[in-house]
Amino acid sequence: MAELLKVEEIAPQFKRYLVHAPLVARKHRAGQFVIVLLHEHGERIPLTIADADPTAGTITLVVQEVGKTTMEMGTMKEGDSIEVVGPLGKPTHIETWGTCVCIGGGAGIAPMLPIARALKVADNHVVSILGGRTKDLIIMRPEMEGASHEVIYTTDDGSFGAKGLVTHALQDLMASRGKPDIVFAIGPAIMMKAVADMTRPLEIPTIVSLNTIMIDGTGMCGGCRVAVGDESKFVCVDGPEFDAHQVDFDLMMKRQRTYLNQEAVARERFLQELHECRAVPAPGEVE
């Protein structure tokens, strides 16, 4: 069992967890993830290792509360314990490419942090483009600024940085400065697809980190499979990073929706129980 040493809210529906996991911290490389299980009745979910401190024996997880498991994790306190296994997946392939653009959207900013850092250490010029719906949802700005040479922000509502999508920022960047040597993109599947569609005709190498549904994370179930080129790949062991130009994003997005109905049932039930046990009216409820 791994103890939660610190739980902080860093943005609405975003929490950062400092977790005691010495073996994982020691072996972690950028791009890798862990699988977390909250309790006996829980579901195994993958979360990227956003940071690791081998000396202190800790890892950092940054989690967006989107459904039952991530919301329930959000109710846990310092001193609580969870099951953690990892580090899983292949580490990011880091080289000295020249100019690297790191695009992070929403919860995808957290996994981008160790990659941007490693790229910078490898003497690349790192330009990060970070996007979110609104200012509050662009997480980890100071950390990403430290890990990049330049950071460009975009929001859907224009509350911070440029109004628009990360792809607009990428387009503007390329119009003024030319093609980067490589692009990394992590975020919602639709964002990664849009980036891939933009860089494919320009032949800019582009790496994405895929977030398929997983169970074991060790290549045993095949539930995480995606089509990459002509092949079927297991994201947990062959990835999670792949050549964006080869990934069948449409199929992947469909597969992500496999359990939409069940997820809604679980979420509603959890929220109801949460309100009952707190014995206070939920916002908007009349006593």
Binding site: H41, G42, E43, K68, M220, C221, Y259, Q262, A266, R269
Partner: peptide, 26 residues
């Protein structure tokens, strides 16, 4: 499904008792 995924969801993760257990199967 692979047989492994189908059986793992049900046996290891107890998906037959969803939503008392969090892992779904349908």
């Amino acid at each position: 499904y692979s047989a492994n995924e189908f059986l793992t969801r049900v046996n290891l993760m107890k998906a037959f008792a969803f939503p008392d257990f969090d892992t779904p199967i349908n």
